[in-house]
Design a protein around this nucleic acid. Structure first.
Lengths: 234, 234
DNA sequence: CGTCATAAGCGTATTTTATACAGTTTGCTG
DNA sequence: CAGCAAACTGTATAAAATACGCTTATGACG
């Protein structure tokens, strides 16, 4: 029963509501996570996700976006709610429910000064230190979600620059799925979707020959989704 | 940043935290939802999901289970968090975040008196009335989750009696996916998984010939999952 | 200036899985 | 004992996933 419906006869406690952001990036073939080092007590020196309390007049999703923008200077970032974490004793200080959100950002876009000012650091996922409270659990859950979701929704592209090469895209999917993919089959599959626009430019940063750049065709994707299309990658 | 980490210098508002249950059942080839009619103001007479405020010393998931047990008399029910609903104005009365949980129950198990005493009613999904607040949205989201999750996790069995027939199982999946499936292919696929235990009993309720009863092999399923197996149904 | 190394890119054969479709069996009913 | 309705079985075809090897482009380097 929703609050308004039975506020007269029910135990009604108020608590803090926070939101924490699991911020993924991708660089040099590795998935990375943006975490923060505490510079004040309590928990000084421990690593933590970035987060904030949700304010009285603020949507939970808006609170998460506010935090992300404060920290990275970025707007229009892909962000989605993961789930709420509501163990009564999850925060030793006081009762607080946290709603975790995961964000995918293009790692070279973000404002470097801004993040450094906040004590931020990019960790490779495999080298992630222990995080405060239940934040490590949040990361694990977010990773599982990303792994599953990447299969049926083109969210991987949120982690790449707007223009990317097929080998880059493949290495991203390899990082997400944590396994090697066959390059010929990967290319074939991706091309057959008809959702990549080949550009007349090459990226020469990783080979003498250079690889053609592509863009993801969001317009066509939207159209296909509307007509009931269901896509899968790898 | 999590509350305890910056409580000294941050705006910190308390709000209500509630949980609402989306309770699915399956009967006579139809997916059904358990909803409640308000008997007091405000919103008298409107339909609503069942829910409760989360208490100070109570895990969110425990609160949801408490509600479910109070209403249905059932314990050990499949329940999973859907997501949090946190629009600032979702409840006109006061600021309240609700964490929606969806539950799958075996419809003939639950305590009928108990539910009726609470003004409960099973609706077929297609005939569901408008619900208060954002509850209709919750149901829609839960249905989408169920539809997707049924593909890769054997949660459908939570909606059937322990012993079920293949035609029953098929009709359940048809209800979830909202489309007809080919009976020969369905049976072939399910049998090939090696996760159904054929019993030496028949259910004669829906045909003269009777259909063999099966049980889901949870033990074997657990083993397969541990060894990295990934299954898919229909 | 030629060859070497490296990553990009392409094509085909094979296996696996999904789909489409038709007929037989069982057992009660009238 | 004929008729009916649902349970059950099998096979052929199409589509998708996998496995695998060779060619091409281009800067580096002797």
């Amino acid at each position: 029963m929703t609050p308004a419906l039975k506020d007269l006869y029910v135990q009604k406690d108020k608590m803090y509501v926070a939101t924490d952001c699991i911020i993924f990036g991708f660089d040099a073939g590795k998935l990375k996570l943006l975490v923060f080092k505490r510079r004040v007590e309590p928990f000084l020196g421990t690593w933590s996700l970035i987060g904030s309390f949700v304010r009285m007049e603020e949507d939970v999703s808006v609170a998460a976006k506010r935090v992300l923008t404060e920290i990275t200077g970025l707007d229009n970032v892909f962000m989605e709610q993961l789930k709420a974490y509501g163990l009564a004793d999850r925060d030793p200080g006081y009762r607080c429910v946290s709603i975790a959100q995961f964000a995918l950002i293009r790692i070279d876009d973000y404002d470097k000064e801004l993040t450094e000012k906040h004590g931020a650091h990019w960790f490779e996922l495999e080298e992630l230190p222990e995080l405060v409270l239940d934040h490590s659990q949040m990361v694990e859950d977010a990773m599982a979600r990303l792994k599953r979701k990447a299969r049926y929704q083109p969210i991987g592209f949120e982690l790449l620059p707007e223009k990317f090469t097929i080998p880059q895209l493949q290495s991203l999917y390899e990082a997400i799925y944590q396994k090697k993919l066959d390059d010929r089959n990967f290319r074939k599959k991706l091309m057959s979707l008809g959702l990549l626009i080949k550009l007349n430019e090459k990226d020469k940063s990783s080979s003498r020959r250079g690889a053609f750049l592509y863009k993801f065709d969001y317009d066509n994707y939207q159209k296909l989704v509307k007509s009931g299309y269901n896509f899968e990658i790898a």
